[in-house]
Simulated scan of single mutants.
Amino acid sequence: MIKSPLSYFSFNELLGVFSVDQWLLLGAFFLFALYVVMNLYTDIQYRKTSNIQHLFSLIVGLSYFSYTHQGSFLVLVIMLIGLVFGLILERMNTSSPGDTKMFVVMSVWITSFAQENLILHALIFCTITYSFQLAFSWIAWVRKKGLVKAVAEQKEQLILLFTPGVSLGKEVIFENWPGAVNMCLGAIFTLLAGGLMM
C-alpha cells in the first residue's frame, strides 16, 4: 500500500519551527496582503473601496502596531503623515477620499513591520506612493494635452497649490486610474527598502 504524502508531514514539527512572534508576523502579513488585494480588486473593478474594510484593517493594524511597538504614540504621527499626503493628492484632484483612507491604514501597517525608524518608513511609503501617483497623472496629462500645454498648466497648478484660499482647477486628468495600484506599488517598494535598510 502506498502512503499518502501527508503521512510524512508532521504538524508539530512545523509549529516548532517558528516562534510566536514569527507566527504573528506571518498572520499580520497575510492580513495586510489580503487587505491590499481586496482593495486592488474593488478599486480596479468598481472604482471604490469599502469603508468597513478600511476600518477593520485599521483596527487590526493598530492592534499589531501596539503589540510590536508597546506604548508608542508614534502611530498618531504616522497616521497624520498618511492623512496629509492623502489630502494633498485630493486637493490636486488626482485622488479620492478612499485613497486617503488607504494612505492612513497602509502607513500603520507598513510601520508595524519595521523595527526602527518608524517615521522614516512612513515617509518613504507616502513619498513613493505620491511619486507613482504624480508620475501616472503626469503621463495622462501629457497624453491628453500635449507636452507644452501640460508643462504650462502644471506650473499654474503649482502656483495655485501654494496660494492659500485659492481653489485648484476642477479638471479631472484621469477618472479610471485606481489609487490602490499606487498604494500597492508604494508598499512593495517600501517593504523592499525597509529590508535593505535593516
Rank of each mutant, 00 (worst) to 15 (best):
A28T: 08
L25W: 05
D21W: 06
Y46K: 09
V36K: 01
L31N: 11
A28W: 07
Q22G: 00
L31T: 15
V36F: 01
Y35N: 10
I52Y: 09
F29H: 07
L34P: 12
A33P: 09
Y35H: 09
T42I: 03
F29E: 05
T49I: 15
L34S: 13
L31V: 15
R47P: 04
W23A: 04
Q22H: 05
A33T: 14
N51V: 15
D21Y: 08
Y35L: 08
W23V: 12
F32Q: 05
A33N: 09
N39G: 11
Y41V: 03
Q22R: 08
A28H: 05
Q45L: 03
G27F: 15
Q22S: 07
V36N: 02
L34T: 14
K48F: 14
T49V: 15
N51P: 04
I52H: 08
S19T: 14
L25D: 03
L26M: 12
L40P: 02
Q22N: 00
S19L: 02
I52F: 08
F30H: 10
S50P: 08
N39F: 06
V37E: 03
M38T: 08
Y35F: 15
F30Q: 05
V20N: 01
R47D: 03
K48M: 14
Q22C: 00
F29V: 13
G27S: 13
V20W: 05
N39A: 07
Q45A: 06
G27A: 11
A33S: 14
Y46S: 07
A33I: 13
Y41G: 00
M38Y: 09
F32I: 13
I52T: 15
I52P: 03
L40H: 01
F32A: 14
V36D: 03
L26V: 10
Y46N: 06
A33M: 15
Y46H: 10
I44K: 00
K48S: 13
T49E: 02
Y46I: 11
G27V: 12
W23K: 07
Y46P: 01
D43C: 02
F32S: 07
V20E: 04
T42G: 02
S19P: 02
W23F: 13
N51I: 15
T49Q: 10
M38V: 07
R47S: 08
S19N: 04
N39P: 08
N51M: 08
I44S: 01
Y41I: 08
L34D: 13
V37G: 05
N51F: 05
I44Y: 01
L26E: 00
A28E: 06
T42H: 11
V36W: 03
T42C: 07
V36P: 02
V20Q: 04
I44E: 00
G27K: 03
T42S: 14
T42A: 04
I44W: 00
D43N: 04
T42R: 04
G27E: 10
Q22D: 01
Y35S: 09
I44T: 02
M38W: 12
Q45R: 13
D21I: 05
D43K: 02
